[in-house]
Design a protein around this nucleic acid. Structure first.
Lengths: 295, 295
DNA sequence: GCCAACCCATACGTTTTTGGTATGCCAATG
DNA sequence: CATTGGCATACCAAAAACGTATGGGTTGGC
């Protein structure tokens, strides 16, 4: 059973005439007549009553007509839907994000996305440092907002901004009275350390920073997430060196201060599978860049 | 866009491999590969990700898959529905009946039909003597249960039975005491006359019957329907000569008696358009015959 | 009552499309 | 490094569809 036959059939049924339908289909009348008869042979029953003034559907023809029209529309819709998905006008976008970026970015990113790609189903998921790479690779998220970027040959990275590192401490700390904290004042103070997912147990940016300034901070605790770090800071367990945007998720009782004479920063990056390159991802990237630009 | 392409596409998507799908479709792998690429060209975007271990749908491919499967199913269902209608397993049957037959036949005919053609939408309409022919011709009823048959070149008739003519009179009439009424006793009594739809104003069977027995009955009233006739009989306006089955619709106060030495009867017939010949009508005919046989 | 017009069906040659076979290319695997 | 598994390409043969020419039946006008 061929879709063209059904298309012809619908045309003839609507025109109630082979000749008229042939004209509308821009083809000759005889081949159309032949196709209709082939369809009837396939069904095994007449679909039209041939009158002297054209053709008229039989009951069997009417039964076929409704379904054939629907099938035609569905097939056309399928092609169109595939195009829309390929072009990024429709589809599904699963956005992974790391907690540090959530408070700074999501409130502006989500409306921006809904505006930019209104036909797309959006879905958001927090990523942990340890699983984010796997979530991108197995496509359970389409794109990931990361800090810092994922480093993997199959994953493509676009750096869309950076956040200065700041010192996080309890409001009660004596250092909190300074508007910015000299690196030297950190020497000897306890550090709440975050692992870096790629390069071992300590944050990739913090370790070189301390080394460069010849500051030694004993590691008071190792934690997995930024909010664990902030909890421990609030509890007075030590100091954390965190990207500026973490302030927005910080509980009362914690203050952030810039580090004097240290401009080190962590990259904000969008990461996705290299083979999933698509217009939708490009659009997402644009949105994320706009949001970061407004921070 | 061709339905075969969509079928191929679905097969490849389900098999997640061109080779496997080709096997299932009993064709060689290369032409299938070509068809898939043609479909992708038509859509304007890749539908599969080619990996080293087979093919995998892209998001656009997934969007197409759901609709393509549905379209396929609908097309197949359409063909099947047309066959079902043509074979009489499904469809619509509009049954017209004349009032005289309603009480005798419908209570047994309707369940019989529902059992015989469970997939068919049944619909019943009472026919008047004056419009029944037009209702068959314009297809507003598919078949008509008539008494007597319609006489028209475009209408086919199947006689399925007959009903003896009987005398209908008020219970109070002196003739009601007889178990059967000799024709001669009718002479001079008032007649409630029914028109015959084809042959003028008087019932085609009653006029010859009276003439043959040389009985003259003055016409007290002319009525259009059997129940009008019975109303007038009940009112004492006169006698009616009606088919036996009319008894079942008769109100209290009317009795029917056979006519002694007169076996005249009226035909029960099924009538339908000659060009609407169908298995469904044949099935209907069988049912109607069975019902009449059990009267 | 015959002829013209209309419409669908059939026949046949041409073109387009599709399927098969042979083969190439690439990546993963042992 | 060779082998295997899987998709893509090339080329040829077969099938299907389209167009032109034509037949046949019915309607409607003169």
């Amino acid at each position: 059973m061929d879709l063209r036959r059904l298309r012809y059939f619908v045309a003839v049924a609507e025109a109630r005439s082979v000749g008229k339908a042939a004209e509308r289909l821009r083809m000759a009348q005889p081949p159309l007549s032949v196709q209709i008869r082939k369809l009837e042979a396939e069904v095994g029953a007449p679909l039209f009553r041939r009158g002297t003034r054209g053709m008229d559907l039989t009951e069997a023809g009417q039964a076929l007509l409704v379904r054939a029209s629907e099938a035609l529309a569905l097939a056309a819709d399928g092609i169109e839907a595939a195009r829309a998905v390929a072009s990024g006008r429709r589809g599904r976008l699963s956005v992974g994000y790391m907690f540090v970026l959530a408070n700074a970015m999501l409130p502006r990113l989500i409306p921006e996305l809904r505006r930019s790609v209104p036909g797309v189903d959006l879905d958001f998921a927090e990523l942990s440092a340890s699983t984010r790479e796997a979530r991108v690779l197995d496509r359970s998220v389409t794109v990931a907002l990361c800090m810092p970027a994922i480093n993997h040959p199959e994953i493509q990275v676009a750096r869309i901004g950076a956040q200065r590192l700041m010192l996080a401490m309890p409001t009660s700390s004596p250092l909190a009275r300074l508007s910015s904290v000299p690196m030297a004042r950190l020497h000897g103070r306890p550090l709440i350390a975050l692992p870096h997912p790629d390069h071992g147990p300590a944050s990739s940016a913090v370790v070189p920073l301390l080394r460069r300034h010849q500051v030694v901070m004993p590691i008071a605790s190792r934690v997995e997430t930024v909010h664990s770090a902030m909890s421990l800071v609030l509890a007075g367990e030590g100091f954390a060196i965190l990207p500026a945007c973490a302030q927005l998720g910080a509980p009362r009782g914690i203050v952030f201060r810039p580090l004097r004479d240290a401009t080190d920063s962590l990259d904000i990056a969008v990461c996705w599978r290299r083979d999933a390159q698509s217009p939708l991802i490009r659009t997402f990237l644009k949105c994320a860049e706009r949001v970061v630009a407004g921070l």
